[in-house]
Each structure stands twice: as C-alpha cells, then as structure tokens.
Design a protein around this nucleic acid. Structure first.
Lengths: 196, 196, 196, 196
DNA sequence: AATGAATGAGAATTCATTCAT
DNA sequence: AATGAATGAATTCTCATTCAT
C-alpha cells in the first residue's frame, strides 16, 4: 500500500477513535483492529500514541484553518467575509464532527500543545477579523470599537461554539445558526444597523 | 481529622493536580504525596480516580453556578444582571484557575459526563438570560430578537471564554474584559444604543 | 514483610535467574513467579530490569571484594597474603556460582558499567598486590620485577579464572587449584625458590 | 554481488555492531542500515539473529585459533613457541578488537554455546602447551611441574587477558605486555632461571 | 481512620521474522 | 537476489485498587 495513503488511513481512523473515546479511553490495538492491520504497522508511521494523537489533531486544525481561509477568500466585502468566518466554523463543526471533537479533546489532554494548535487557527482568524474590522471602521460602516477586544470576543464565541458543539448534540440541541451569530455581531458593530 | 474537612482537603488537592496535569497525566499517588497522606486514605473518601475527578469537577461547576446566581441576584435591572453574568464568568476564570481548568479538562476526558456538568451551569445561565431578554423585549429596551438564539450565542461566548482562558494565559494574552463583552452584547441587543 | 528483607530476597532470586539465563534470556515475570510475588512488587524495589540486574551485580562484586579484603587481612606474611587473594577468588567462584556468574554476564551485557564493577574489585586487588610485592622486593624475598606488570598479570589470571569457571563446569572440568596457582606465582617471583 | 562476499560483508558488520552494543543492544535493522541493505537481505544469508551472532563469533574464534596455530608453527624451540602463543593472544586483542570483543560478549549471552567456542581455542592451546611443557621437562629445561595445572593456569591468564582487554581500554589502561607475561611464566617454570 | 505494601490487569512499544513484489 | 512493509508475539512498566495491620 502507498505509504502516504496508509498514513492517511491510519490518521483517519485514529481521528475517529480518539474523537469517540478520548485519548485515555482509546488504545492502539483498538485502532489497529478497526483498520484490520497489525498494531506494529501503526508504529511504522507514528512513533507513539501521543504523536499519533497530535498528528490527528494537527491535521484537523489545519483542515479548519484551510476551510476558513478558503471561504474568506471567496467572500467579497467585509460583511460577507465575516459571515464566511462564522459559517466556516459552524459548518466545520457539523460536517467534520470527528475533527472538531479531536480538537476539543486535545484541549483537555495536552494543554501545552493545544496552545499551539489553538493559535494556528485563531491567529489566522484574528488577522482576518482585525483587517475586516479596521477596513469597515475606516470606511465608516462599523462603529469605532476596540478592534482587538471585539476580535477576541468573536474568537471566544467561535471557540465556544466548537467546544460545545458535541456537548449540545448529546442533548439533541442545536446551537446558534450562522445567520443568528452574524446578525448578532453586525447589530453590535455596524454604524447603521438599518443597512442589514 | 474531621471527615468533611479531609474530604474537602482531598478535593482541593485533586483539583489542583488534575488542573495542572489533566486526568491521564495525574496519578493517585501524586495527589496523596502532595497532601502528605497515604494513597489508601483517598479511597476512604472516594471510590475511584474517576469519582474523585468528577467530584472535583462537580464542585467546581457548582462553585461557578453559585457565583453566577449570587451576582445575578445582587444586580438590579436587566443591564446590570447581564453584566453580572458575564462578569461572574470572567472573574471565576481569573480567580479560580484550578476550578475553571478542571471544568475544561473534563470536557476532553469524560464527554458524556461533561454534558451534565455543562448543563448545570448553562441551563441556569439560559434561564436567567432568557428571562432577562424577554423582560427587556417586553419592556421595549431590547430589540425583538430570537431569544433562544441570542441566549445560545452568549452561552457559547462564555463557554469559549472559560475554555480558552488557560490557553491564552500560556501565551501571556488576556481575553476580552467584562466591559468589552457587555458593551458588545448591549450594542447588539439594545433597541436604542444611545442609552449606553 | 520487612522492606530490606524483601529487597534482599528479590536480589537473591534475580541473581539466580540472571545467572542461569542471562539478562536477555530472563524476564521480570519469571523472577516474580519464582518468588511467588507479583511483578509489580519488584518494581517497588527496583525501577527497571536493568537496575535490578546491576544491583544484583553490584552486590555480587561487593561480596567478592569483601571476601578478598577479609582473607587478606587475616593472612599474615606476604606469601600467605598472596595465597589468600588467590584462594578468595577460587573459593568465591566455587561457593557462590551465581554471584561469579552474574559478574561474568554483566561483562557481556553492559560493558561500560562492567568497567566500574570490574575496577571495584581489581583496583582493590591491585592495591594489595602492589603493596605485598613492593614489600617483598624491599625485603629481598622477591626478585626485583616490574610490580605493575606482575600485578596486571595476576589480575588477568584471576579474572580469567572467574570468567572461565562456569565454562569449565559445563565440561566437568576443574580449573587450577589455589595451591597450583600460588606455587606457580611464587616460583616466578621468589628470589630463592628453595624457600618454598 | 558474489554470495560469499556478501555473506562475509554482513558478518563483518555484524561483528562490529555486536561488539559495540552487545547482542541485546543490537538490532537487525541497525546492521542492515549500517550496510545500506535491506533487513530481509540478511535473512537470505542467516536464518536468525542468533545464528548471525554465533556465526560472527565462530569466525572470530577461528581467526584467533588460526593466528595461534600459525605463530606456533613459525616459532622454533619451546621458549619461542610459548612466547608465540602469548603474543598471538595479545596481538589478536589489540589488532582485532571487534573479534576479541564479540568472543567476550558471547560468554555472557550464550553460555552453553560459548563453552564450545571456548574449547575451540583453548583445547588447541592446551594441546600445544602440554606438548611444549612435556618436551621441556623431559629435556630438563623446565621444572617437573604438574603439566595440566600449569596449562590451565596459562589458559586462564590468556582468557582473562582477552576478557579484560576492552574493559582496560575504557579506562585507558594497558595490560601486561607479551614480554612481561613470557618472562613471568618462564621464571616460574624454567629449571634454571639464569638461561633467560 | 490511616497506612502503604502488594497486586495484576492493562497498554505501549519493540523487533525478529516473513513474504509479496 | 533484494526489498521493506507488515506482522504479532513478547516484554517492560504503570498505576488504580485492595487489604492486612
């Protein structure tokens, strides 16, 4: 089997298993069994359980970061770009539950490493949001708010959305929609709400 | 030693140790050592490591819930009550890092149990917020928004604030202030922003 | 059970098992089984298999060094002291096969560590022998040989005696006797052989 | 590549690696890597790790035995033949460290097999030495000692020389020289020392 | 109530060996 | 002949939990 494909296949299964059972609740044999391969094979591609977990997390986080980047690039105009960032998070949480969940699991298991992971996404987010906000303020469509605080608020809101997504699902609840969040945000920051 | 005091002492240390090292990264011997007692003694008060961890988490969560309840009761008027809820979360994160951190750790380790924990706080939050919002809408000071969505948004924002608090600290960053979040929220939901 | 006694008991069995099967050929479970205790118990006293092995070796080497020291002290006169050193090695090999064997095993398994072990005994030997030889030369009973070379020769002879002891036993052969070695040595170094 | 050459090349590298790291400390992958060949290739020439190790040891032993035989044959007269045997061991230890070291390693790892190995060399030694001694005694140049004991003593001395060679090197020490050992021996066994 | 020695199930990891290509 | 990916048995080590004192 092609090494890249095998590596990717292991990562897929590891993501699924770790997402379902957490790091401590999963074992290497279980991942191997689920793939129908030998335990030793996993170690040909990853040096340890921790490395496998973190590789799976990293891939998830990069996937999220790419999703955001792609959608922001596609969107035109500050309002649409903001909606794109919010939408990217919600869609990512819904469509890639394993990926979203493993990101949240990392937070509890490897705090120090999670810092880096977290900043991979959120520093990107921050960059985009600050640009958009500054542009909008200069342009006169946004109120002259403290850009950094506003950005941090939205970052927390989006992080909270991902961290609570699975929790809500366990209760058959749905969180706020992209539209609701976007409206909420714009109502707060727009200079003239009535352009909505 | 008074049994309740000993139990409480063990919970305190467990909270500290689990907060620092996570569930998988902590061991019973370490907690006993830190207390200067024998490992077996812990088992006189808690049946298992998991039970100890969840008891510590539960206490943390109740502490947060009580903090919120107390401050909301003290505050007068919808605006002040909203500010109190937000402030309670931020102050709790700052002043009780261990407690905030163990709540975040539980999310990654015991997902199913975390659902309950989470709802202990957030259903309370939700109840208060929905009341406040409905009251404010009826009263005409808030726009006529979808109350459930708005509540869910704020819940996510506050959860994100707790979950990212330690992460930010690792980077020597501070998150948004109570004032910033409150202003942000009110600007969005107030019927007339200029009353601020 | 008394911790020192237990530690000692584990060391005894480890010495026996490692002597019989070598380091690679032994496993911790086997040692535990032979003692009728749990594997984990061994780890309460020794942190790793290697540490257990080296502790057993160290004890063996100290035992040999003490045997030599005791017998040299007891013997009176240079000729008797020399005989005592030689006799101590031969008796040690015969009466403490496990101990002699584990010393030889260490040589093959942990070369770097064996250096230290080896010098624990042989620097002691060297010290005694050089003293005795110098004394005898000054006194006129020994020829004026190169003391360091002669000492090194006897050290090699005694090391060879220990290292080959088990090998010879496997062939039902006996090595040279204390008397033979002593006579051999004295015939070489005495100024006048006929005092023998 | 010529099969014999490849086999030989593998044995060379195996000897080096096993000499440096011991049997347990070496792995087949490491040997293959050092040769720049695939691990599986080694198994085309040797059926197992143990077989490879023992083949390397056997070759080393035969090399030593041949060295001795060659030098004994070349030397003329009992005194020179004795010097040749001693010199062969010392030169072998110095010039073929890997070979000498793997012989010592085998002693600790495969005791039963080492018996055979050991006797390959030492029975040869014994044969030569006993012949020489008996000849010298009959001839009147050697004292009438117990030939077997004297032979065993020299065998132990030479074995000890090989087993301690690497140990001494780790301490930057040199063992006794060929001349010193030969003089020592002859002073002991010669009927008239003054012919030296 | 407290202790801490002992337990042993459990998991990670290694690596000699195989075999399809 | 050579390869190197795959295997899985074997082993070390950990640590939650128990229990005799």
């Amino acid at each position: 089997m092609n090494p890249d494909a095998r590596r990717s296949q292991i990562l897929d299964m590891a993501t699924r298993v770790f997402s379902e059972s957490g790091y401590g609740g999963s074992d290497m044999q279980g991942i191997a069994d689920a793939l129908g391969i030998a335990k030793g094979t996993i170690y040909l591609y990853f040096n340890s359980k921790k490395e496998l977990f973190l590789a799976a997390t990293l891939r998830a986080i990069e996937n999220l970061a790419n999703t955001i980047k792609r959608e922001v690039k596609t969107a035109s105009g500050p309002l649409e770009k903001i909606r794109a960032i919010i939408g990217a998070h919600l869609r990512f949480s819904s469509e890639n539950r394993d990926l979203a969940e493993i990101i949240a699991r990392e937070r509890g298991e490897f705090l120090a490493h999670a810092e880096e992971t977290y900043y991979k996404v959120f520093s990107e987010n921050t960059k985009y949001l600050e640009e958009i906000l500054r542009y909008g303020i200069t342009d006169g469509i946004f109120r002259d708010t403290d850009v950094e605080q506003t950005t941090a608020i939205l970052a927390n809101l989006l992080a909270g959305t991902i961290f609570t997504h699975t929790l809500r699902q366990g209760r058959n609840e749905t969180g706020p929609s992209t539209d609701a969040i976007t409206d909420f945000l714009l109502n707060s920051i727009l200079y003239e709400r009535n352009i909505l």
